[in-house]
Computed example of a mutant assay.
Amino acid sequence: MSFTSSMQQTPKDIAQRVIAMEAAAITNLITLIDERFDRAINLLQECKGRVVLTGIGKSSIIAQKIVATFNSTGTPSIFMHAADALHGDLGIVQDTDLVIILSKSGSSPEIKALIPLIKNFGNKIIAISGNDQSVLALQADVFLDTTVEQEACPNNLAPTTSTTAQLVMGDALAVCLMELKGFKDGDFAKFHPGGTLGKKLYLRVADVFVHNEKPAVLEIQSLKEVIVEITKKRLGVTAVVDNENNLVGIITDGDLRRMLEKKSDIDSVAAADIMTGNPKTISDDELAITALDMMRKNAITQLVVTSEKSTKELFTFMTY
């Protein structure tokens, strides 16, 4: 099957052209960020209620994505379809809410009908549009310009570049609010407890090692006792402690093998002779992903977990 057009463009050529056009439009969006963006952020920060996002057609789909981004980053938001708003859903908008309206032209019939209704309620409006002379742009409290030179569609009709610009403007608002609020990974984890992302952000070291044994030997204990402890606790490692239970080193099964290869006389070998001093440690309240990254970077498979909460069991191991 041939994919060439009348201009002999391959699918690769078309894809590269589309991406280049949209990338150029997004780059140009930087020049459209001015004091109006600051005013929009001020309105969002002052909002005592929710942020209601609305639009029609493809813009409504982008509005839904921005709602999801806002909600997951600490800005309570809700979606209202512009057409449904005219048939009862306008009840979504409460007195303390702020409304963001997305529209490429800013002059769709539903948008033109919706604007005076929202303004009569007394709610502030932020417009995200590509037409600075539209009804929406002129009636909004703040207008954010997402003008694009051309759609990626060869007929310059299907919303492509313009919806990408809307999406990026929404991301810019969300990230700006995040940083101004000091929204950290711990806050992010509260809204993402499920799936891989949630586990990375929410799972703590204490959640992972909770059932692990706690192998330990004294510095002066014999090789036989070390082997028994490692075998009994089945983690492939043991901590080495002093008489006051302070951690001074660790011995892994790999350490044992290397020692046996080098020494023939092992009767006098004690734990202190073969241990690795100053082992890598991590607190039990650290994120589990941090512990895994530490093990990967240091090419180790066991990590000593310390705790300030227990006086009897000051450490255990996390294995990878």
Rank of each mutant, 00 (worst) to 15 (best):
T27G: 11
L201R: 00
A63K: 15
Y202P: 00
S103T: 02
G55H: 11
Y202G: 07
T196R: 12
V67G: 05
N243A: 11
I118C: 05
A127H: 08
A63G: 15
D84T: 06
L90G: 11
S6E: 11
F37Q: 01
E35D: 10
E151T: 10
M259S: 01
V52R: 15
K297F: 07
T54G: 08
K309R: 14
Y202M: 13
K297A: 10
I56E: 05
D13S: 02
G91C: 03
P76T: 06
Q302S: 15
M295K: 00
K312F: 05
I56K: 08
D38P: 00
K181S: 06
S283T: 08
S283A: 14
D285C: 08
A127I: 01
F121V: 01
D89C: 04
I41P: 04
Q133H: 10
A270M: 07
M1D: 02
V226G: 09
V205P: 00
D97Y: 05
E35K: 13
F121D: 01
L32Q: 15
I227T: 13
L167P: 10
S2G: 12
F143I: 12
A20R: 08
V210F: 13
G254Y: 12
A165Y: 06
T163N: 14
T290E: 12
D242C: 05
D95R: 15
I100K: 13
L114D: 02
E179M: 14
D285I: 13
L44T: 07
G49I: 08
K112A: 02
G170C: 11
K312P: 00
D242N: 15
I62G: 11
Q8W: 04
L144E: 04
H87W: 10
K233T: 07
I250M: 11
G254A: 09
I266G: 05
E149F: 03
A299D: 14
T290Y: 06
E313F: 14
G198V: 00
G91N: 03
N212A: 12
E313S: 15
L114C: 11
E308Y: 13
V142Q: 07
A23Y: 05
A299Y: 14
V248K: 15
F121K: 05
F3D: 09
I111P: 00
K104C: 03
V208Y: 04
V248A: 07
T311C: 04
L117G: 01
I220E: 13
N245Y: 07
T290F: 01
F121G: 15
I250Y: 10
D13I: 02
K200D: 00
L29W: 06
I282Q: 03
K190S: 04
K184A: 13
S307P: 04
I100E: 07
K200E: 00
L86F: 02
T319G: 04
I289R: 14
A216E: 14
S283P: 10
Q139W: 00
N245R: 13
K199C: 00
G57L: 09
K190E: 07
L44D: 03
A83Q: 14
K119C: 00
V168I: 09
Q166H: 13
T163Y: 11
S59M: 06
V210C: 02
